[in-house]
Design a binder for these strands. Structure first.
Length: 492
RNA sequence: GGAUCGUUAGCUCAACUGGCAGAGCACCUGACUCUUAAUCAGGGGGUUACAGGUUCGAUUCCUGUACGAUCCA
C-alpha cells in the first residue's frame, strides 16, 4: 500500500472517531502517571501463574503490538524504559469501553491505563486494564515489529522512528548523558566552574581546523562557529575566574567518517597553578569514573579488550617511534630524518626539520598501535602552538595526547603563558597560512593582549566526548552516539 | 577526493541466464475470552531511487545523477 493511502486510512479513522464518538485523542492534555512499567515489573515479580494483585496501577505508554481475540485482547505496551503486557477483557471493561478499544485503538497509540497486575497462565506479568484513556494516536504505521528498522539512512534521518523500533538506541543516549554528568561531577568535585563561551565569534582559534563561516546581517560581517573553546577559557583564567571548564559542541568544516561529524562535543578544562601532569591525573580520574559508572574498567570494544585501569602508560613520541618504526629521532639529524622519510615514501618538504618529521612517523607507524590507554608526551614545539616549552628542551613541549583504541582521546598541555613567545608562534602560523596551510592557527591579537595581562601557570585539557561515548557504549560509528547526526539533504 | 557495494510495497527481504514483480510483517473486512512473531478466512497495496541508453522485451545489461554503507586518502 502506498504510504499516502495507509496514512489517509488512519486520518479517516481519526475523523470518524471524532464524529461518531465525539472524542478527539489530540485534545487530551494530561494523565497522572503514578507508576512506571519498571515499577510494576519490579514490585509484582513475585506473582505466580494466575495470581492476581489487588493493587491498582496507573500508568501510561505506547501500544507496540496488538493481539486481539474476540472478547479478549493483549497488547505489548511500552513506556520510556520498559515493556509490559496489557490485557483487555470484555468482562472487565464492560461492553462500551471494550467496543471502543476494539474499534479505535491501534498499534502506535498512546494510552493512559488503570489496571491490576496479574500473571497469566503462560507466566507473563500483565496489567489487566480496568480503565484506559486514548491519549494520542499514531497516523503512521510502526516499523516492522520483528525485524525492526535496519536502514541506516532512515535510522539517522528519522531518529524518532529509530528509537521507537530499536529501544537500545535510547540506552546509548541515556549512557551518553550519564557520561557527561560524570564528567561534570568529577570537575565540580575539583572546584571547577562550568562556563559558556561564544559559539559564534569573529576568530575561530584554539585548534588547527577549518571553520564554518556564517554572516551577521546587522553588523554585516562574516563570523565563525567555534572550532575550540581554548582561547576564551584561558582568557577567563587571566580574569581570575579560577578553574573553569566548558562542555559543548565544536564545529569543524572537514570530512565526515566513522569517527568525525562536523559538529561534535568536547570538554575543555583549565586549572591555574597546574601543569600537564596534573591534567594526566584528571584525565585518568574522569575516564575511570565514567567506566565505573557504566559497568567496569575492562571493556570490550568491537572485539578488542581494553583495560582502563590507571595508571595509563606514559611514553614519549620519540620512544614510541623508536619502538614501532625503529628510528631513534633523539639521535638523528634533520637531513637523516628527511632521508628516512623519503625512503618510506612519506611526504616531506626540504625545509622540514626532524621535529616536523617525527609526528609524521608517529601518525604513520605508532597511532594505530596504541590500543591500550597511552599518554604520549614530548610533542615538538612546531606542532604545538599553544603549549609551553619544555624547560630542558625547548624544541619539545610539556604536552600529552591520550590515545585509546588508536583514537586521540585527549590533548593537554602546560599552557603557553609567555605573551612574547605566543605572539611569535602566531606569526609562525600566519606564515604557514600564507604558504597555503588552510588549517593554520589565525592570529588572535586580543588573546595575546590577555596573556600580556598575565596568565598564571595553567594546565589545560580537551577530551572528545563523542569518542568516550563510542568506546563505553561499544558504538561503531560517531553517528550512533550523536542523536541527530549531520546528513546530506535528500532532494525530493 | 578515490575504490567497492547497495537503493524493489510502510518495514524486513525474494525474483535463476534479460521474459507476466513476490513473500512475511503492517494495513482493511470477518471469526475467536490467556495471546505474546497469536491463529484462521478474505481483501487492497508497486513509476523496482532518478535520468538516459541497448533490446521485440530491462528490477536484471550499459552510462550518468542523488542518497547511503564499507574501505582508503
Amino acid at each position: 500500500m502506498p504510504e499516502e493511502e495507509i496514512f489517509r486510512q488512519r486520518k479517516d479513522k481519526l475523523m470518524r472517531l471524532r464524529q461518531e464518538e465525539g472524542y478527539d485523542p489530540f485534545q487530551q492534555d494530561h494523565w497522572d502517571v503514578k507508576h512506571t512499567l519498571s515499577y510494576v515489573k519490579e514490585h509484582y515479580a513475585f506473582l505466580k501463574e494466575e495470581e492476581w494483585s489487588e493493587d491498582e496501577i496507573q500508568t501510561a505508554g505506547r501500544v507496540m503490538v496488538l493481539r486481539r481475540h474476540g472478547k479478549t485482547a493483549f497488547a505489548t505496551f511500552e513506556d520510556e524504559n520498559e515493556r509490559l503486557q496489557l490485557c483487555f477483557q470484555f468482562d472487565v471493561l464492560g461492553e462500551k469501553d471494550y467496543t471502543f478499544f476494539k474499534k479505535w485503538v491501534d498499534a502506535g497509540d498512546f494510552l493512559g491505563i488503570v489496571g491490576v497486575p496479574f500473571r497469566t497462565q503462560r507466566g507473563e506479568l500483565t496489567l489487566s486494564v480496568k480503565k484506559f484513556c486514548l491519549l494520542s494516536k499514531a497516523l503512521r504505521p510502526m516499523p516492522e515489529k520483528w525485524h525492526g528498522l535496519k536502514d541506516m539512512e532512515v535510522r539517522y534521518r528519522q531518529r524518532y522512528a529509530d528509537m521507537i523500533a530499536n529501544p537500545e538506541v535510547r540506552d546509548t543516549f541515556r549512557k551518553r548523558t550519564k557520561i557527561i554528568q560524570t564528567f561534570r561531577r568529577v570537575l565540580d568535585d575539583h572546584g571547577t566552574l562550568e562556563v559558556q563561551t561564544p559559539i559564534l565569534s569573529t576568530i575561530a582559534g584554539g585548534a588547527n581546523a577549518r571553520p564554518f563561516i556564517t554572516h551577521h546581517n546587522t553588523l554585516d560581517i562574516d563570523m565563525y562557529l567555534r572550532i575550540a573553546t581554548e582561547l576564551h577559557l584561558k582568557r577567563l583564567v587571566v580574569g581570575m575566574l579560577g578553574r573553569v571548564y566548558e562542555i559543548g559542541q565544536q564545529f569543524r568544516n572537514e570530512g565526515m567518517d566513522m569517527k568525525h561529524n562536523p559538529e561534535f562535543t568536547s570538554l575543555e578544562v583549565y586549572w591555574p597553578y597546574a601543569n600537564y601532569k596534573d591534567m594526566m591525573d584528571l584525565a585518568e580520574e574522569i575516564i575511570v569514573a565514567c567506566a565505573d559508572e557504566l559497568g567496569g574498567r575492562v571493556i570490550n570494544y568491537q572485539g578488542t579488550e581494553i583495560d582502563l585501569t590507571p595508571p595509563f602508560r606514559r611514553a614519549t613520541m620519540t620512544e614510541l617511534v623508536t619502538e614501532h618504526a625503529g628510528i631513534d629521532f633523539s639521535a638523528i639529524t634533520d637531513e637523516e630524518a628527511r632521508r628516512q622519510a623519503a625512503i618510506r615514501g612519506l611526504e616531506v618538504k626540504p625545509t622540514d626539520t626532524r621535529f616536523d618529521i617525527l609526528p609524521v612517523f608517529f601518525e604513520e607507524y605508532v597511532e594505530e598501535e596504541l590500543i591500550q590507554p597511552t599518554f604520549v608526551i614530548g610533542h615538538p614545539t612546531v606542532i604545538s602552538p599553544l603549549s609551553k616549552r619544555n624547560r630542558e628542551n625547548p624544541d619539545i613541549t610539556d604536552r600529552f595526547e591520550l590515545f585509546i583504541n588508536a583514537w586521540e582521546f585527549a590533548n593537554a598541555f602546560s599552557e603557553l603563558n609567555d605573551p612574547i613567545d605566543q605572539r611569535e608562534r602566531f606569526m609562525d602560523q600566519e606564515k604557514k597560512k600564507n604558504e597555503g596551510d588552510e588549517e593554520s592557527h589565525p592570529f588572535d591579537e586580543d588573546f595575546v593582549n590577555a596573556l600580556e595581562y598575565g596568565l598564571p601557570p595553567t594546565g589545560g585539557m580537551g577530551i572528545g566526548i563523542d569518542r568516550t561515548v563510542m568506546l563505553l557504549t561499544n558504538s561503531k560509528s560517531i553517528r550512533d552516539v550523536i542523536i541527530f547526526p549531520t546528513m546530506k539533504p535528500k532532494d525530493l
